[in-house]
């Protein structure tokens, strides 16, 4: 059961401001999402190992340097940049 406190906590962790009048609706929506995902809990998994479903292990790369992207490419999508740095508003 999702509570208003859960929503506030999630908002806090995600650094989102949630207005008081949004809380009830968000709680309802989140409950529905979680209930949907709860279907997974009903599956019978006693006989199956879900630790490694794709049956893949040890996919490695060797320690060889590949070229990085030029700085212009890296910061191309940044909302704000300065002298090669990404710039964001300082967070408290």
């Amino acid at each position: 059961m999702i509570t208003r406190e859960d929503i506030l906590n999630i908002a806090l962790l995600a650094k989102l401001d949630v207005a008081e009048d949004e809380l009830d609706n968000l709680t309802k929506e989140m409950s529905a999402v979680v209930a949907f995902a709860d279907a997974v809990n009903e599956a019978d998994i006693k006989t199956e190992s879900f630790d490694n479903v794709n049956n893949l292990a040890n996919v490695f790369r060797s320690d060889e340097v590949q070229p990085s992207l030029p700085n212009e490419e890296i910061i191309k999508n940044a909302l704000d940049s300065d002298d090669g740095y990404f710039v964001v508003k300082k967070r408290a």
Partner: peptide, 18 residues
């Protein structure tokens, strides 16, 4: 997790990839 160099320093955001 990628082939970018681990060298210390360098101009900002030049040892980076997607």
């Amino acid at each position: 997790f990628c082939g970018c160099t681990t060298q210390f320093g360098g101009d900002p955001n030049t040892h980076c990839c997607p």
